[in-house]
Design a protein around this nucleic acid. Structure first.
Ligand SMILES: [Zn+2]
Ligand SMILES: [Zn+2]
Ligand SMILES: [Zn+2]
Ligand SMILES: [Zn+2]
Lengths: 146, 146
DNA sequence: TCCTTATTGATACATAGTATCAATAAGGAT
DNA sequence: ATCCTTATTGATACTATGTATCAATAAGGA
């Protein structure tokens, strides 16, 4: 939501610059994750990939998901149909909202989270290096449709 | 941290009031979860349980963990050694900090999270009904020991 | 004490994810 | 373009995590 959008070309570049070879599976999976409006599991991505590339291996998809996650291009969604679904990373520090009715993901402005982390560091004395925040509920559109 | 502490008796009461019978396994598992200072998986709890009750069944532990989670007595920790570890629920709305060095859990004051949720509801228009926030890093003690 | 029924523990099964390894193919060198 | 090296792939087997089934057990009321 805040400015940034997904550019599959940038994802390919990021993969290649990390020393990974350019392959057909890469492009297939990047397209799948970058263009899906809702969280996808590796298993679901595999199904979709086989529609256009039937020989795609299951392990390959899991490996690719791991690489995309390690590069920070996709992020795991925790607590939405388990913890095995992923969405593209939009801002570095994400405040992700998932609608429990329609399943769509929305990226909220993350400034409040930055403030919260700063504040918690000061009051607790802990050094916070990583965080994950997930919000669930009914999105605006679903509320209006009800 | 904020006031409240764990009282195994209250957990037993909560279980029984939900229509569940009082059994030896209940007490064993409640003790295990209530007194462990760090997140535990069902598998780990099973191991510990068998030390004092060798006949304890694996499925029973998983069932018990599910019940405790459904009653809100324990909560899943996401992103710390996977997503299959649990800690006792302290405040209703938890800001949980996990130290990546010593593994200990700390419960921070959750007012900032309440504020964040209120603010995000107003600016996004979504109705937020559930949230999970996890913070990771180096706790104060571990920083001092380094 | 007896009876009913929730709970248990053993087993089998299901799902999610990982290790192994021979076959393939990317991309640089010739 | 051809060859060579080696990362990547896909098939398979395996591990880990979690669930369904069901006979045996035991809680708790009659
Ligand atoms: Zn899905
Ligand atoms: Zn919606
Ligand atoms: Zn999770
Ligand atoms: Zn620590």
């Amino acid at each position: 939501m805040p400015g940034k959008t997904i550019n599959p070309e940038e994802w390919l570049t990021a993969l290649n610059e990390s020393g990974i070879r350019v392959t057909a599976v890469q492009e297939t999976l990047i397209d799948i994750f970058a263009h899906s409006g809702y969280p996808l599991s590796a298993e679901e991505a595999w199904e979709i990939a086989r529609q256009s590339r039937p020989q795609t291996g299951r392990a390959t998809v899991y490996r690719m998901v791991e690489k995309l996650e390690n590069l920070g291009l996709i992020r795991r969604v925790h607590g939405y149909q388990g913890c095995s679904h992923f969405v593209p990373t939009l801002p570095e520090l994400m405040m992700l909202f998932i609608c429990l009715s329609c399943g769509r993901a929305d990226y909220l402005d993350s400034q409040p989270l930055e403030d919260l982390i700063q504040h918690s560091e000061h009051t607790s004395g802990h050094h916070i290096t990583d965080s994950r925040l997930q919000l669930f509920g009914d999105c605006r559109a679903c509320q209006e449709n009800a």
